[in-house]
Design a protein around this nucleic acid. Structure first.
Lengths: 107, 107
DNA sequence: CCGACACATTCGAATTTGGTTATTTGATCT
DNA sequence: AGATCAAATAACCAAATTCGAATGTGTCGG
């Protein structure tokens, strides 16, 4: 349902894009050229991937002269963590209710 | 890099599939028919989505007579949580190093 | 055994996606 | 100003995805 989650999962579903995001998390800030060097794909390809990550709220762009520096956004992964823990929570609460039931049946 | 993560993100990147997984987390266990009723897509479509979720390790199948019951796998989301916290960790440790640096510069 | 049922699988059409090359925009240097 | 460099955008193509219709497989009831 949520468009935010959709953008998040979609952008992270591509291995190249995920690798780029990982590099940004490790290194903090990188230019398009630096990112292009090790990905094995062309510069326009890299720019496109960065656009996707940016529109998903995972990275930010900082323009400095003729080059653009990209860095991870601290709260970009929050919706992902929220969703995940919510899913685990659903399962957990079901489990708890089951435990309750069993305990009541025990008596 | 990791094939597990790839399968996970890819299977959760489809909104229909994510909605199905959410329903399973909320309800615990559902048959293909029950899942088909509310998704708005055909039964073969549902079966295929379930196959993707299953091969990603997110759900399990339990055959009972001529119907199949699907339920979420408790540890299916672990690799996702691991990856996420690792990313946050990278950022955090960079932040810590920066704090260290600033503190040393302060003196 | 035969028909109905629950689900899985196959196949083909329509759409989306990931990549390219070519071009454009904007900043820097001489 | 003109050349050059960094990055973004455009136009395009091949491959992958998603879906439905048709079909296959196994199970239950009569």
């Amino acid at each position: 349902m949520s468009a935010t989650q959709d953008l998040l999962f979609k952008s992270l579903s591509d291995p190249t894009r995920r690798a780029m995001f990982e590099r940004l998390c490790r290194q903090g800030e990188l230019t398009v050229s630096e990112l292009t060097e090790q990905t094995g794909i062309s510069q326009p390809g890299v720019s496109k991937h960065l656009g996707v990550l940016k529109s998903a709220g995972l990275i930010r762009a900082r323009h400095e002269g003729r080059q653009t520096h990209y860095s991870p956004k601290l709260d970009g992964l929050s919706p992902l963590m929220d969703w995940t823990s919510q899913m685990v929570g659903f399962w957990q609460s079901r489990f708890d209710r089951l435990e309750d039931l069993l305990q009541r049946m025990d008596q």
